[in-house]
């Protein structure tokens, strides 16, 4: 799908995590990765492997100390509306209603008011939140909160969608529904997606490619191709899918064990 220079180029990036107390830890070690336009890439790894850190660097939220990240050949220096982000815990503005949350990004652009309202409404409808426009986040279920967050980010139309374990805080059924909806939306409004997860099946189901990361310090262990016919409702039972999950689980397993031992 991509041609020429890849849209996102991560080149030899290392990052030190400096906790307020205690000694610095090497979170990312010499990570290089390229992502094409409209590609769906999953970053898969055990918790604490630095995959979220890599996403935050890409978002421009953390300073890049070593190495370089470019988006469309321009170095990442600060957050910007070309890269939208969805967080695990939704990060909705609790003092704003569903509609006002979704309007926030649109208000930062020069767009006439009625156009903004119409656009917000169309994304409210897209994620199935019609009737909840005037609710505050505290009145919504976890799944509804994440739908709102997704609509808020999609509404201002970023080229790149950064997703930080977006379904990690949801119950299994809601998560499954949301995965399907995300794929559906992604196929209709193609964007480049970087999706951080530690769920192997989720990564295989959603992504075109899965980058497996090692336990801390995070490195790219390998990249696995995971293109399937995502519209096949029985995909989870097919042999190719199951084999792929097994293959990736084998790759992640050792790292998960390493990460788990470190906690003790």
């Amino acid at each position: 799908m991509s041609n020429g220079q890849p849209q996102i180029v991560i080149d030899k990036v290392s990052h030190m995590y400096r906790p307020p107390r205690g000694k610095p830890v090497l979170a990312l070690d010499d990570v290089s990765l390229q992502v094409g336009t409209r590609e769906f890439l999953a970053l898969l790894g055990p918790s604490g492997c630095g995959k979220s850190t890599l996403l935050y660097l890409l978002g421009g939220f953390l300073p890049i100390e070593k190495g370089a990240i470019t988006v469309d050949s321009k170095p990442v220096a600060a957050p910007g509306p070309d890269r939208g982000i969805v967080f695990q815990h939704f990060a909705l503005f609790p003092w704003k209603t569903v509609r006002d949350n979704i309007l926030y990004g649109l208000e930062r652009q020069s767009m006439p008011k009625d156009e903004r309202l119409a656009r917000a409404q169309s994304f409210i409808d897209l994620v199935g939140l019609s009737g909840f426009e005037d609710s505050f986040p505290s009145q919504l279920s976890g799944g509804m909160k994440q739908r709102t967050a997704l609509a808020r980010t999609l509404a201002f139309d970023p080229k790149i969608l950064l997703m930080d374990e977006p379904f990690g805080a949801l119950d299994a059924q809601t998560r499954h529904l949301m995965q399907g909806e995300l794929l559906n939306i992604w196929q209709r409004t193609p964007k480049t997606v970087i999706f951080v997860t530690h769920d192997v099946q989720e990564a295989v189901y959603l992504a075109d490619r899965v980058a497996v990361m090692t336990a801390r310090p995070g490195r790219i262990k390998t990249i696995v191709d995971t293109k399937f016919d995502k519209n096949d409702p029985g995909i989870f039972k097919t042999k190719v899918f199951v084999d792929k999950v097994d293959e990736l689980w084998g790759l992640v397993r050792d790292e998960a064990i390493k990460a788990e031992r470190r906690k003790v």
Binding site: F61, G80, R83, Y104, R108, Q109, F156
Partner: peptide, 14 residues
Amino acid sequence: SEQTLVWSARSMGA
């Protein structure tokens, strides 16, 4: 104030 709220606003162009 939550870090992710600050980041969200910044990424939306604030």
